[in-house]
Amino acid sequence: MNALLAIIARDIRLAFRAGGGALQAVSFFALTIVLFALAVGPNLELMSEIAAPVLWTAALLATLISLEQIYRADREDGSLDVLVETSSLLALTALAKATAHWISTGLLLTAATPVLALLLNIEGAALWPLILSLLIGAPGLSLIGSFAAALTAALPRAGLLIAIIVSPLYAPILIFGAGAASAGAAGDPQYSANLALLGASSLFAAIFSPLASAAALRFNLD
């Protein structure tokens, strides 16, 4: 348990050090939303209709660009060997890595959302469904993404390949996440159904991703 907490703490610390992915992801997220708000212009009605899908897409893309480094950096400096050698169960190590990634990107994006949502004309009661959907869905993004990162750990410039691998797996989370945020804002009864399906997607990722990541890492050790 101590070792898992140490891995989470180390990865979060690395994410905020020079060259870490946390600030990159949150800047990308903010930039996308600002540019989008500028492009749509002062049409407030249109804006509030598409705000949730836009915010969710921006969060997904910001997560996507931070995935590549999850395992590749560890493989390049030899610390992946150390993690494997000290791990009692590699799937748990992979779960710790995914958790650290969620805290240093997904949770950070969720925290930045209330400010950025203002630009998209989301305020007051409409904000909570959006935050809740990100809190439930973003862990799923990190879990699925870390599996793709484990699969491509040995490949240089794996960014495009990772995008191709995760896109179909991200689709349900995007659909239910943006769906829940929109439905919640509109007072639509489909809100809770979308949230439940979003939670199910994240839970499925929480089971499948650590096991699949562990298998992929073993394969990528040589």
């Binding site: 101590n2 070792a3 907490l5 140490a6 891995i7 180390r10 610390r13 690395l14 050090r17 020079a18 060259g19 870490g20 390049e76 400096d77 030899g78 610390s79 060997d81 150390v82 993690l83 000290t86």
Partner: peptide, 22 residues
Amino acid sequence: GVLNGGKPTLTVTENLRFWAAL
């Protein structure tokens, strides 16, 4: 191995402390 297994952006003590925890 030939690679030292430490993190370039962590200090010497931070690397050692992480290993000690592992």
